[in-house]
Design a protein around this nucleic acid. Structure first.
Lengths: 208, 208
DNA sequence: ACGCCGACCGGATCGATGGTCTAGTAATGG
DNA sequence: CCATTACTAGACCATCGATCCGGTCGGCGT
């Protein structure tokens, strides 16, 4: 009777709480350590309960990924198209790097509302800039590809495996001389900005 | 005696056979269905045997990924840097798209010999083209990022989830008007080539 | 006031998986 | 002929995603 466990104070478990906790868990321990049991434990509930709110574990990952996209602010609509595109790219990249586990989830359809609204903003910005139907997909696509691809490479280079790669490359420097000489020590922010400038320059050329 | 199972004709299991079979299995059924047991079964052996040749399942994936990189031919050293870079990018992309499961593995250190030699070729080509120390990492990095990122997006768009995304986008066309109008029907090869041209144009500008 | 229904929760459990322990067997070199 | 090395496999373990089934709680209609 009195021993019966205190009634759980109905802090009803919501999908939002689950997603927020999943993001926190992923930030702290990475994708490999996200299990439904561990997630449930952190939420002080049973693992099976999660399945009432969510159909599969993949749902949790999809939701967590889109939650990160929600952290990307849409740039103010003032300024030129180039500034806006660059600002969106920078913000997008920052969000991905803030949650490095996202780069492992980019190989899945990004059709959450936050992802789609950012993509729509990019398309709209470029369309307004004057890219016609023939160039719009290529322009938008190359920019988003560049952001996600570069974040993936940087995240990988900066975790523990990156150090191993650098060491291995230094040991094999005569097999890969140019790579070892120039690919090891560079500022990621600078490199990203420069590559983005290549891309935007080429796009600006196209606009004439 | 005679019932005793025929002595296995010692087609000794080699690492190469394991990797080749892993690639075949991944091609046919995708990453999710690659398990050590299934792989062993296809090789007509026990799952534990694989662990003599390989330390973990991740090793198998790393080896399979690098095997695909090995399919990328190094372009002939004749012609300008731009032709060579474009040829390498096209061949790299083709190999990734030929094995769509690779895009799910790009978030891991690509430090296999095949991957490194292709990267070295890219660096050497761009260094010879005249990119100095300040530009080399950005140039090589943006190109490889573009190849891997675009292959990822295309592979995702072309599997079953891609159709769902298109349908969802069409249903929500008033929420994402520009995206729905221009992002749905385009030729991937053309789009890739055009985005690559943006990038190469911008890089050529830099060379002056 | 009552009963009931749907939202919500969880213990026990299932099948599958990655990986290890241990015990082998085939071939090779001395 | 033996011993060492290369290689194979059965039994087994912990863990995971997911499901079954039986609950508990709050609010609504009557």
């Amino acid at each position: 009777m009195w021993l019966r466990p205190r009634r759980r104070e109905r802090q009803t478990l919501t999908l939002d709480r689950i997603v927020a906790e999943a993001v926190a868990l992923l930030d702290e321990e990475g994708e490999a350590r996200l299990t439904m049991r561990r997630l449930a434990e952190r939420l002080d509930t049973g693992s099976t309960t999660l399945y009432w709110h969510v159909k599969t574990k993949d749902d949790v990952l999809d939701l967590a990924l889109d939650a990160v996209f929600g952290e990307v602010p849409l740039p103010a609509p003032e300024g030129g198209w180039r500034e806006r595109a660059a600002a969106l790219a920078a913000a997008w990249r920052a969000a991905l790097l803030r949650h490095p586990w996202t780069t492992g989830l980019l190989d899945r359809p990004m059709m959450g509302p936050n992802a789609l609204s950012r993509t729509e903003f990019l398309y709209a910005t470029l369309a307004e800039a004057g890219f016609g139907a023939a160039d719009l997909p290529a322009a938008a696509f190359s920019l988003s590809t560049y952001v996600t691809g570069s974040a993936t490479m940087q995240a990988r280079a900066q975790d523990s495996s990156g150090a191993a790669l650098r060491e291995h490359l230094r040991a094999q420097r005569e097999a890969y001389p140019v790579l070892a000489a120039h690919g090891l020590d560079h500022d990621w922010d600078v490199t990203f900005a420069r590559g983005l400038a290549y891309l935007l320059d080429g796009m600006a050329d196209r606009l004439g």
